[in-house]
Structures are given as structure tokens and as C-alpha cells.
Computed example of a mutant assay.
Amino acid sequence: MLSGLEAALAEASSPSWTRRVRAGRDLAAFADLPEAAGALVGLLLDAEDTAVTRKTAEALARIGTVAAVRLIALAVVEADDNQADWLQTGVQDALVGPDGVPDVAAACRNLAQDQEEAIRRGAAKISAWTGETRC
């Protein structure tokens, strides 16, 4: 029987967009693991369906850890304009409502000190999406 991580990794490459959405949601809890990180960035930059991009970004933003937001930041700098729009929508979906996720802004502030310039750039964009004036 496959573990939750193994099952989600298998679904991340499914031809079914609904399975890829589920994989993004399930893998978000494992954002700090290298084996999940690559699959998550792939889902954030899904070329087949914008729902996968949006829902994976939302799931990672809801987790709100530095590791999770770092993956979104990495995807932001690699994304085309359309993907970036859906990444932003996913992050904003996580932030709306009474149980919004304020940790995203804190993670962006932390990532502003990252050694990788691309991560700093991506974090600055995400910070702007959260309404933060500084990162």
C-alpha cells in the first residue's frame, strides 16, 4: 500500500487534471521535503490546466510555511503571464475570508533574505499580492 506522500507523487503526473489538483493539495503538507518540492513546482507550473496551478498555489499558501511559500516564489519567477495570474489567484483565494492565512506575508519577509535572487524576486511579488508594502 502506498503512503500518502507516494500516492500524491504518483497522482502529480496523472493525465487527469482532477487527480493533479488532489496531488497538489495532498503534497502541500510535504512542501519541506525535496521529493515533494519538485512535483509541487511542476504542479504550480502545470501547462495543461490552470485549475491545477490555482489550487496548488492555494494549498501551499494555506500551509503558509517558509518552505511552502518558497515553492510559490520559485514558480512565480518561472511562470508565464497566464500562470502568474493563476498563481496570484490561488494565493489570494487562501487569504480571503475569516480564516485567511497571515503567515504568507511573514514567510515572504523571511524569504526576502534568501540567498537566491530569484526567490527574493518571487517573494516580493507574492508580498505585493498579500497587500504588504514591504517584503
Rank of each mutant, 00 (worst) to 15 (best):
L95Q: 06
D49H: 08
A84L: 12
A28H: 06
I63Q: 13
E132K: 05
A10H: 11
A118G: 01
G42Q: 04
V76P: 01
S3I: 13
A124T: 11
R54T: 14
L74I: 08
A51T: 08
R62V: 13
R20E: 12
Q92F: 00
Q115M: 03
T50A: 12
A112E: 05
P98K: 08
C108S: 01
D26T: 03
E117W: 10
A107G: 02
Q115C: 03
D49W: 02
S127A: 13
V91K: 03
E78Y: 01
F30S: 03
G4H: 05
G122M: 07
T18N: 12
S16K: 12
A94C: 11
A123Y: 02
G97T: 11
I63H: 12
A105L: 06
A10Y: 08
R120N: 10
A94D: 09
D85A: 12
E35H: 02
R62M: 13
P34E: 02
S127L: 01
V52Y: 02
R134N: 04
R54L: 14
A73F: 05
V76H: 00
W129Q: 02
G38P: 07
G38I: 09
V21P: 04
V52E: 05
G38K: 03
E6I: 11
R120W: 03
G38N: 09
E116K: 14
T130W: 00
R20K: 15
A28R: 01
L87F: 05
A123S: 04
A36F: 05
D80L: 08
R25A: 15
V101W: 06
V21L: 11
T65L: 02
K55T: 14
D26W: 00
A29Y: 14
I72C: 06
A39D: 01
S13R: 15
P98C: 10
A31H: 00
P34W: 01
A29W: 13
A23E: 10
R22P: 00
N82R: 11
A128C: 01
L27W: 05
S13I: 14
S13T: 15
G38T: 03
R19Q: 10
R109F: 05
G97P: 10
N110D: 14
A124V: 06
A73K: 00
